[in-house]
Design a binder for these strands. Sequence first.
DNA 1: TAGAACGTTTAGTATTTACTAAACAAAGTA
DNA 2: TACTTTGTTTAGTAAATACTAAACGTTCTA
Lengths: 175, 175
Amino acid sequence: MTTNTQIKQNFIQGMSGISQFWGFPKAMGAIFGVLYVSAVPLSLDELVESTGLTKGAISTNVRTLTRMGLIHPVTKVADRKDYYEAETDFYKSVQTILKGRQNSEFDRAINSVKESLASLEAGEGSFDKKERAFLIERLKALQDFFDAIDNMTRAISKLDRLGINTVQSVIKILK
Amino acid sequence: MTTNTQIKQNFIQGMSGISQFWGFPKAMGAIFGVLYVSAVPLSLDELVESTGLTKGAISTNVRTLTRMGLIHPVTKVADRKDYYEAETDFYKSVQTILKGRQNSEFDRAINSVKESLASLEAGEGSFDKKERAFLIERLKALQDFFDAIDNMTRAISKLDRLGINTVQSVIKILK
DNA sequence: TAGAACGTTTAGTATTTACTAAACAAAGTA
DNA sequence: TACTTTGTTTAGTAAATACTAAACGTTCTA
């Protein structure tokens, strides 16, 4: 026999796994899962109750989930508890996440490729002509690749509405 | 004054950072970086030399780099050393990576969402009519999202040749 | 103003991860 | 057969990460 809690628990565990796969804490996926199968917004204490995590863990994970646009704070009048509800439009969350990626560690790292390339093109170092040409060619190819990815994410994050239709039209192009 | 090694070292460090950002070991990025700026394939011992890592670390990282299609083994006749060279077509590597993703932990996790949904639709548990409908709706939306992602990656990995042109046409659609 | 109700931050801990050092395996060479 | 040369695997370690427990700060209420 399958109970209500078993069904929900199975789902929540699945969300934990997905979270982990994408490099986020398991707890984050679990918190999102709980909120996603709840018809009403839940408070921190209710999340403590339903996940078994401590308030501290809930607090920090809820903050990053909010930053990623995967959940939203909800305030009730005459109630100073914070409540949270899951975002149901995942495409919207994807946009938020991609936008937040800007100016991050990623850009900093990519910039070092740009720097190396600039050094080479400015004639710095003492490479012989052939090696310099080789290195410039390689670094340029790499930068083109990064630029393509960057353009892709920029384009996605700038769409007014990234819905299932857009995704399907992209898939059609790819096929 | 900027020396040859400084320029290369700066690049290699950048690749370490990028590797780390994407959730891979820093060492992996460094190894790839070294191979990418080398005009000739390098042996394990040469990689030990140029990265400062131990043979063990090189061995394991080289293996996963090879699986991801980011580098390739090269064998020379009458020489039982293994040499490695960097793949220069990154779009090809992306395909390899996406292909390898199949049947992974990700699919397993996603499957648990499928299971939960199936339980609900089979009438398992003792949810009242309204709650069951609510849960089914939510889980369906989530599964649609995952399916879209899945289709997207499948489409990409099935392309005969994923080049800069394809990427640019996708970007055009998105804009 | 004292106390209660919340959420956040911090100090410490357990777990995971990526590495080193060294043993090991395989396969050629003397 | 013993010895070299190569790459892999393993046992142990150092560092990073994600959590718990508890202190703390803030804001509302009596």
